[in-house]
Simulated scan of single mutants.
Amino acid sequence: MKESYEFSDVIICDDHYVSAIGVEMLLSQHSSRPLNIRKASTGEKVLELFTQKSSDLLIVDLGLPGISGIEVIKKIRQMSPTTKIIVLTGQNEPHLLKQVYQLKVCGILRKMGTGKNLGEALNFIQTNTDKTYLDTSVTSILKDQSQATPTPREYEVLELMSKGHTSEEIAKEMDCSLSTIKTYKARIMNKSGAKNSAEMISWYLKRN
């Protein structure tokens, strides 16, 4: 059954043409009234479109050429605070999805299973103004990350890192090889979603 949504102007930002067309078709199928749908393939183009005219709803991918999807979200938040934002992405990196979730967008969906999930998300954001719609795969990824717990040896590495020790010093302190420390760090990065040592330390300090 088609729904009567509160939005009439939609911008779809996806650098994959087929994906953007697919989303446009799904929107038309779900809405009971005509929608003005504009499309962009880059973050820069989205900002240009918003400069010309704001939009009720932005559906944006994360992996964009040029300005990233996350940067687009931050800029649109400043340009048009009332615009609802749904992230539709093929990305499954926990740290990226967590970043997006922390931006308090209206919905986060993986591209697989888009049809059903997009319809649910559109209905959800009609009545939930302070919550984020998450499809089941995103929920699972975020849950797995939040439950990721370092081993005692990994905790030891994190503690020494937080005290400013280098990898060489940590290896000597823990009486193991430098390659072992690098392995520990790689595991910690995977569990924490951190991209560098500073983010690993920040993650460690928040847990303690």
Score class of each variant (00 low, 15 high):
Asp9Ala: 14
Val10His: 09
Ile11Gln: 10
Asp14Ala: 04
Asp14Phe: 01
Tyr17Arg: 12
Val18Ala: 15
Val18Gly: 07
Ala20His: 08
Val23Ile: 15
Glu24Gly: 14
Met25Ala: 12
Met25Tyr: 10
Ser28Pro: 00
Ser28Val: 07
Ser31Gln: 06
Ser31Pro: 03
Ser31Glu: 03
Arg33Gly: 04
Asn36Gly: 02
Ala40His: 04
Val46Cys: 13
Glu48Ala: 11
Gln52Leu: 10
Leu58Gly: 09
Val60Ser: 15
Val60Tyr: 10
Leu62Arg: 03
Leu64Gly: 05
Gly69Arg: 07
Lys74Ala: 12
Gln78His: 12
Pro81Asp: 05
Pro81Tyr: 05
Thr82Trp: 04
Thr82Lys: 15
Thr83Gln: 06
Lys84His: 03
Lys84Ala: 07
Val87Glu: 01
Leu88Phe: 13
Thr89Lys: 06
Gln91Ile: 07
Glu93Val: 14
Leu96Pro: 00
Leu97Arg: 10
Gln102Arg: 09
Gly107Asp: 01
Lys111Ile: 02
Gly119Glu: 06
Glu120Cys: 11
Glu120His: 14
Ala121Gln: 09
Asn123Asp: 12
Gln126Cys: 05
Thr129His: 12
Leu134Gly: 10
Val138Asp: 11
Lys143Cys: 12
Ser146Asn: 07
Ser146Leu: 08
Gln147Leu: 15
Thr149Arg: 11
Val157Met: 09
Gly164Thr: 11
Ser167Ile: 10
Ile170His: 08
Ile170Gly: 07
Asp175Pro: 00
Asp175Thr: 10
Cys176Asn: 04
Ser179Asp: 14
Thr180Glu: 12
Tyr184Met: 15
Tyr184Gly: 12
Lys185Ala: 10
Ser192Trp: 01
Lys195Asn: 13
Lys195Gly: 11
Asn196Lys: 09
Ser197Cys: 01
Ala198Glu: 14
Glu199Trp: 05
Glu199Thr: 05
Met200Lys: 02
Arg207Lys: 15
